[in-house]
């Protein structure tokens, strides 16, 4: 499963979007949005400076 965003933690900084190797995250107005292209690599979970992404299914 794709990672899940804990929106209360998100700072909308774009780190996840820049780090996603397949360009699957677009920073929409209020939060990053993960598209179907996601390969579930988990990089966005680790790159987030505040830990706002939860691994998929966790």
């Amino acid at each position: 499963m794709s990672p899940e965003l804990v929106i209360e933690k998100c700072m909308r900084c774009g780190a996840c979007s820049g780090a996603c190797p397949v360009n699957a995250i677009f920073l929409e107005e209020h939060s990053p949005k993960v598209s179907d292209e996601c390969t579930e690599c988990g990089l966005c979970v680790k790159v987030c400076p505040v830990g706002a992404f939860r691994p998929g299914g966790a």
Binding site: A15, G18, A19, N23, L43, K46, V47, C48, P49
Partner: peptide, 12 residues
């Protein structure tokens, strides 16, 4: 322009 993780600094 995707960058390898070793070449990204994540900051707070």
């Amino acid at each position: 322009t995707a960058i390898p993780p070793k070449d990204i600094m994540t900051c707070f």
